[in-house]
Amino acid sequence: MNADSSQLADWLTLARQGDDSARNRLFEACRSFVALTARVQLHRRLQTKVDPSDLVQQSMMEAHHGFDKFRGGTPEEWLAWLKQIVQHNVLDADKHYRGTERRDLRRERPISDPALSHADWSPADPGPSPSQVLSKAERELQVAVAIESLPDDYRQVVLLRNLERMSFDDVAARMNRSRGACQMLWMRAVEQLRTQLNQDISSS
């Protein structure tokens, strides 16, 4: 685990020194993270007209082009930065598709606007040691890869229940299936996730 996590940090350091192959590996490792972030953000804005893969493409390109502007150092800051880029793009796409509806003054509520979000400067853990921080970022990437590689309906149920924290009644309504069916689907999905995550650990 430690070897693996320092690898992410190494790639980041090398990439910032101008090593192109490290940079490519870094981006490849983060693709699933970007994809999942885009998916969740779009979902949260009830935006179904936008294809997440377009946003992934765009965000990865922006991250490539703007790599020099990344000022953080740790993998965690790196992920937060990527997340911010995705959020900007999601917001833009959302604005674009919603047209003028968003200008309605009655809607001027303090929504949690991702464009105004900032680097993730408040980790839940009050004082993580550097190695913990690294492994946390690494773990996030693993989870993202695992969730992204699930079949569509598995991924959907995990997104709704685990990431969006919806109750099974709501999940069932959203997926247009019975509550029981959703629960079964969810357990299989979590089981598959678990297998994959543990595989990753043993392989690394």
Binding site: L36, T37, V40, Q41, R44, L79, A80, K83, S112, P114, S117, D120, S122, A124, K136, R139, E140, V143, A144, I147, V158, N162, L163, E164, R165, V190, L193, R194, L197, N198
Partner: peptide, 23 residues
């Protein structure tokens, strides 16, 4: 056997959203 993975997935949910919102 499931606890850690569920918690990891959940911490992913937290980083995807606004940290203050979760708070």
């Amino acid at each position: 056997a499931w606890a850690d993975d569920l918690r990891d997935i959940d911490s992913f949910a937290a980083i995807l959203s606004d940290p203050l919102e979760i708070r």
